[in-house]
Write a protein that binds this DNA or RNA. Structure first.
Lengths: 222, 222
DNA sequence: CCTACAACCGCATATTTATGCTAGTTATGG
DNA sequence: CCATAACTAGCATAAATATGCGGTTGTAGG
């Protein structure tokens, strides 16, 4: 399994924050860490899609309050063009109203600006390795909401026999994910996603993603 | 805000674990902490309901693998009779299959048995104060699942005003038709279908046909 | 051992979709 | 009369998807 990047490669980080102090502060800070490489800083998220597409950062530190595009919106845009990029939200306050929006947009981490520099550094390392840094308060909020919304969504009897993996892929499709996003999520190559969709289409007798999703919903395969 | 209990009251803790070493180890450990008071230890969860009802612990450390009733089942039972009790699951491995079951049952914390004693102590303090201790891996698992279920739900309300023609196009999409098929059916050019989809995506805040169909179904726009 | 199958990956190509820009017509309300 | 909206349409380009072909690996059963 070669999913973990070699340690020799520093974690490429981009910072979006309208405060020059924050941008320069973090940039200086990360100079002390060999494994973290700030490859760009921006005062706003105007060209976020273009930026992440060309820079391909591993981690984005995203301020939540920026002029123009908000950090939440920027997160959604960034994750859309580069699902493999991890976003850590920088929030001024422990403003829980934004937590869920941030998560929904695709953020993986949620940090307070007043956090210890240690925390920020470890948060970057954690997200870069597929983890999720959050403090106890944020975790609790998320957990409670998660539990509340967790109703019995178990899959029922099916007339078609999709393999486990095929079902996973189909479920991702039913969440509106693109092949790229599915590949990232399931940690497989995009060509493998294609292979699975081929089999799924064959079994479900369809010719497009939309049809597959419709059949999946109608037959309650998901 | 008076949500935090007075410090003078130690946190009442009960331990369920079939290993005497664990039970005694933690009991001895917590003797060093004035704010943690182990009021009972049990090798299995047979009388968990009776126990929590009478002892009223603030926190339960719950082994996941116990003879008879599992830690998951015991958690559900405990939370049923005493919802104010917080449960921290002790798991042997980083067994993610149990995480969601544990959360659904009502557990707030999820610890590995190999954790530092520091971590266990702070976990107890955190849950007792309404937080949720979890490591980055568990947090990530939860977050991903949460996001998946949330993106489905939260956007159900909102009234979007699609024009008549846009609704027609969307309906065709919901029948799995391609642009070409839609154009033929509605007797318009394929570029016109494109124009309509553009507006539809804008109004529905989506970026693909599949997403549009999913939103249409969810909001019952069709 | 052989066979089947699930899961994985790759490349190539045709088609479809997404999105930017532009722009004509026809209503409709201010 | 003007602005706005809806509907129409075209061109261009990038991205995503659909599909055909090929392959490796590992595991379960005969």
């Amino acid at each position: 399994m070669e999913t973990i990047p070699p340690l020799s490669q520093p974690i490429k980080v981009i910072i979006f924050d309208d405060s020059p102090d924050i941008r320069e502060g973090f940039t200086s800070l990360f100079k002390f860490y060999d494994d973290i490489d700030v490859i760009g800083t921006y005062p706003d998220a105007r060209n976020v899609e273009q930026i992440v597409k060309t820079m391909k950062p591993k981690v984005i530190l995203m301020d939540i309050d920026m002029p123009g595009i908000t950090g939440i919106e920027a997160t959604a845009l960034a994750k859309h063009v580069a699902p493999e990029t991890e976003v850590v939200i920088l929030s001024q306050l422990n403003d829980d109203s934004n937590i869920f929006e941030a998560i929904k947009a695709g953020a993986t981490g949620y940090l307070l600006k007043g956090s210890d520099t240690d925390k920020v550094v470890s948060a970057i390392r954690i997200v870069a390795n597929g983890g999720s840094p959050m403090n106890a308060f944020v975790a609790r909020q998320t957990l409670d909401s998660f539990r509340r919304s967790m109703t019995q969504i178990s899959s029922s009897e099916q007339t078609v026999s999709l393999s486990d993996r095929e079902k996973e892929v189909l479920e991702c499709m039913c969440e509106g994910m693109t092949y790229k996003e599915i590949a990232t999520k399931l940690n497989i190559a995009i060509d493998t996603v294609r292979s699975h969709t081929r089999k799924i289409y064959e079994k479900l007798q369809v010719r497009s993603k939309t049809e597959a999703v419709l059949v999946a919903i109608r037959k309650k395969l998901i």
